[in-house]
Each structure stands twice: as structure tokens, then as C-alpha cells.
Design a protein around this nucleic acid. Structure first.
Length: 238
DNA sequence: AAAAAAATCAACCGCCATTCA
DNA sequence: CTGAATGGCGGTTGATTTTTT
């Protein structure tokens, strides 16, 4: 159900995400946040575009995501909200804690569209509606099993708190093929960066002091920008 | 048992709104 | 004001799985 992994002409990886990539992205976002999605993959050691990283996080890795079957209440709410808001999936998803817009949209097209249409066109015929609801539920038994299985396989909460990727990504000469000097420099730096932060569990205080995100939260903007960038090359990004 | 059809859902694409220099 | 960069959104695709024939 996922697209075959491939690498495009710019060296950007596409298609299904591997567990290793998920771990890198999760570790990075949980530690440093995501103030800039476009820059993130470079510093997280991912050969993905920022858009792809954002999508993966929002629709799959976010720790508050709810997996598995939709409750009857959730489905009724989606139908009601869709009637009010139309195809504004993000607005609808915002009312359903733990559900992403993509997930809600998929569920609508797969399960609810037909039901909503029937409810609208034949709202007086409750018998027919009930019958369709029951057959829908039977179909969903199988999809629920799949979801449950997938959730067990991929559930973030099942993975130990400290993800198991202590080793930095390997750098081979083939990785550098086709890169100009600047890309190569950035890539090598990101590898170094990754190896630094992933090998420290937990990070020492001295590192967190130079973490720009922490500084943004605790120091004034001016104070932050007047600090010397002693270890500029090993900071995540600014 | 095999083939065909339908269902599923993660991922991609293109567009638009916002921000910032 | 303008244009580039970025984030976010909705529509669509396509590989895989499940169901039906």
C-alpha cells in the first residue's frame, strides 16, 4: 500500500519510509522541533525533501496520533462536519483529536461518503440506512484487523524511549556522487552532526545551552543573536 | 486454486496564503 | 511593492491487501 522507494535525479529519496528513516526523523523532531521543514532533512541526516518529512511526521509519526478503528461517534461527527464545512479536511480533523486530515479524508472516501449520500437522499428510509450501516461494519472488521496489526508493527509507543539508532548513517562514495562541493559539504556536516547528537544519551548540558530552540524558548531574541556561535557547525540549525 | 475486481491508505503533486527581506 | 521561501491544504495516485468471482 506504499509506494516503492526510489531516488530522483536530485538524489532525493521518495516513496515508502524505512524504519531507520522514521527513527531519524522522530528523534530529530522530538529533540529539536521543526522550525524549518525544508532545512530539517539536511541536519537530520535524511535524503528526503522537507515536504516529505513534514507529511510523514504529521500523518504517521506524531506521538498524539490515534491509530485504528473510527468510533461511531467520530464517524457521525465527520459526516456532520462535512455537511457544514465541505471538503475542509484540516478543519474537520481539528475537531477529531488524534486524527490527521489525510486520515479523515481517506476514511471519508472509503467509508462515509456513500453513507452520507444515502442519509441525505433517503433520510426517511431508516430501515435501509440501518442495513447499510451493518454491512459497513462487517467490512470494517477486516480493515480494523489490518490497522491493529500495522499499529503494533509501527507503534511509536512500542519503541523504547531512546530509539535504537546509535550509529550514524554510513557515508559511502556513492552517496557523494553527483553532489557539488556545497552539497557534499552540507552532507558531510549533517553526517557529523547526526553522529554527534545520536551518540549522546542524554545530551550534556553544554549542548542544550547552544541549542537554538532552547534559546528561543528561554532567552530573548536579541540575547540569542548576540551569543557567539562557538560550535556553529555542530548546532542543529538556526 | 487462480484470476479479477475492489478496497485501502501512505505518499505525491500542485496550488494558495503567509512571511520576510 | 515585489518576489522568493516556506508551510499547509485538498485532490489524486498507485502499490499492496482483501474480497469476490
Amino acid at each position: 500500500m506504499v509506494r516503492t522507494p526510489s531516488i530522483d535525479k536530485n538524489g532525493i529519496k521518495r516513496g515508502a519510509w524505512s524504519e531507520k528513516e522514521d527513527n531519524k526523523l522522530r528523534a530529530y523532531v522530538e529533540r529539536f522541533g521543526h522550525p524549518n521543514w525544508r532545512q530539517l532533512p539536511k541536519y537530520a541526516g535524511l535524503m528526503r525533501c522537507g515536504k516529505s518529512c513534514r507529511l510523514r511526521w504529521m500523518n504517521y509519526l506524531r506521538p498524539d496520533l490515534k491509530k485504528g478503528k473510527y468510533s461511531h461517534e467520530e464517524e457521525e461527527l465527520i459526516i456532520k462536519l462535512h455537511k457544514e464545512l465541505g471538503n475542509r479536511w484540516s478543519a474537520i480533523a481539528a475537531k477529531l483529536p488524534g486524527r490527521s486530515d489525510n486520515d479523515v479524508k481517506n476514511h471519508w472516501h472509503a467509508h462515509l461518503k456513500k453513507r452520507a449520500r444515502l442519509t441525505n437522499s433517503n433520510s426517511s428510509n431508516m430501515e435501509q440506512f440501518t442495513e447499510l450501516s451493518i454491512s459497513g461494519s462487517q467490512n470494517e472488521q477486516s480493515s480494523y484487523k489490518v490497522s491493529e496489526h500495522e499499529a503494533t508493527d509501527c507503534n511509536i509507543r512500542e519503541v523504547p524511549d531512546h530509539f535504537d539508532t546509535p550509529c550514524p548513517p554510513e557515508v559511502s562514495s556513492s552517496d557523494l556522487n553527483g553532489m557539488d562541493w556545497m552539497e557534499e559539504d552540507n552532507y558531510m556536516r549533517s553526517m557529523e552532526q547526526f553522529s554527534i547528537f545520536s551518540s549522546l544519551e542524554p545530551l550534556p548540558d553544554s549542548f542544550s545551552l547552544t541549542n537554538p530552540i532552547d534559546n528561543f524558548q528561554t532567552e530573548s531574541f536579541d540575547h540569542f543573536w548576540t551569543q557567539p556561535f562557538d560550535n556553529f557547525w555542530t548546532q542543529p540549525f538556526i
